[in-house]
Computed example of a mutant assay.
Amino acid sequence: MEIIGFIAAFLTTAAFLPQVYKTWKTKDVSGLSLPMLLLFFTGIVLWLIYGIQIKSPSMIFANCVTILSSFLLVYFKIKYAKK
């Protein structure tokens, strides 16, 4: 079962990375909602805690990478937001 988890982790994490890259390159954060990003970040932190509790390597791996990615989007949204 864990192999299915790793495949899912790879696909969902990989799907998120182009948005991070595009935002970093263009510095355009107009399409990003800060409340949504904060809710998403909080949810991923909770998924990580859950993954640690059930000792699921795939959940731990995926959520660690996604926490970093979503944190970067929150950072970019704050840094590049029009004043």
Score class of each variant (00 low, 15 high):
residue 10 F to H: 00
residue 48 L to C: 05
residue 35 P to M: 08
residue 2 E to Y: 10
residue 36 M to I: 11
residue 9 A to V: 01
residue 80 Y to I: 11
residue 33 S to N: 11
residue 60 I to A: 13
residue 77 K to R: 13
residue 61 F to D: 05
residue 79 K to L: 14
residue 27 K to I: 09
residue 51 G to Y: 04
residue 77 K to M: 08
residue 77 K to V: 04
residue 45 V to S: 02
residue 7 I to L: 10
residue 12 T to W: 05
residue 4 I to F: 12
residue 71 F to D: 00
residue 81 A to E: 07
residue 33 S to C: 09
residue 56 S to R: 14
residue 12 T to L: 06
residue 34 L to V: 11
residue 68 L to Y: 09
residue 7 I to S: 06
residue 51 G to R: 02
residue 12 T to V: 12
residue 14 A to L: 02
residue 10 F to M: 04
residue 61 F to M: 15
residue 31 G to L: 12
residue 33 S to T: 07
residue 6 F to R: 02
residue 9 A to K: 00
residue 42 T to N: 09
residue 15 A to K: 08
residue 11 L to K: 03
residue 61 F to Y: 14
residue 20 V to I: 07
residue 17 L to Q: 09
residue 65 V to F: 01
residue 2 E to K: 10
residue 77 K to S: 06
residue 10 F to G: 03
residue 16 F to Q: 07
residue 61 F to I: 13
residue 49 I to K: 12
residue 43 G to T: 03
residue 4 I to W: 12
residue 56 S to N: 15
residue 30 S to W: 10
residue 50 Y to A: 08
residue 52 I to F: 15
residue 25 K to Y: 04
residue 18 P to F: 03
residue 49 I to F: 14
residue 64 C to H: 02
residue 39 L to G: 02
residue 34 L to A: 08
residue 73 L to W: 00
residue 12 T to D: 09
residue 11 L to M: 08
residue 2 E to H: 11
residue 65 V to E: 06
residue 17 L to W: 10
residue 8 A to Q: 06
residue 29 V to M: 08
residue 35 P to H: 09
residue 78 I to L: 15
residue 66 T to D: 02
residue 73 L to P: 00
residue 23 T to I: 02
residue 41 F to G: 00
residue 20 V to A: 03
residue 55 K to L: 14
residue 64 C to K: 00
residue 74 V to A: 05
residue 33 S to P: 04
residue 83 K to T: 14
residue 80 Y to N: 14
residue 57 P to F: 04
residue 21 Y to S: 06
residue 41 F to V: 00
residue 8 A to P: 03
residue 83 K to M: 12
residue 48 L to N: 02
residue 16 F to Y: 12
residue 3 I to N: 13
residue 63 N to S: 03
residue 8 A to M: 06
residue 83 K to H: 15
residue 78 I to H: 12
residue 74 V to C: 13
residue 26 T to I: 09
residue 57 P to G: 12
residue 52 I to V: 15
residue 51 G to C: 13
residue 56 S to I: 14
residue 68 L to G: 08
residue 22 K to V: 10
residue 68 L to Q: 04
residue 36 M to Q: 11
residue 74 V to D: 08
residue 15 A to M: 11
residue 29 V to R: 07
residue 24 W to M: 07
residue 35 P to W: 10
residue 57 P to N: 13
residue 37 L to S: 02
residue 68 L to N: 03
residue 40 F to H: 01
residue 78 I to R: 15
residue 51 G to N: 07
residue 66 T to Q: 06
residue 51 G to S: 15
residue 53 Q to H: 13
residue 76 F to N: 04
residue 18 P to C: 06
residue 76 F to V: 04
residue 13 T to G: 02
residue 11 L to N: 04
residue 15 A to C: 12
residue 54 I to D: 03
residue 68 L to W: 07
residue 50 Y to S: 07
residue 23 T to V: 05
residue 53 Q to W: 13
residue 70 S to R: 01
residue 50 Y to H: 09
residue 32 L to H: 11
residue 29 V to K: 08
residue 49 I to W: 12
residue 41 F to C: 01
residue 23 T to E: 04
residue 77 K to W: 03
residue 49 I to V: 14
residue 12 T to A: 06
residue 63 N to D: 01
residue 70 S to L: 05
residue 77 K to H: 07
residue 61 F to Q: 07
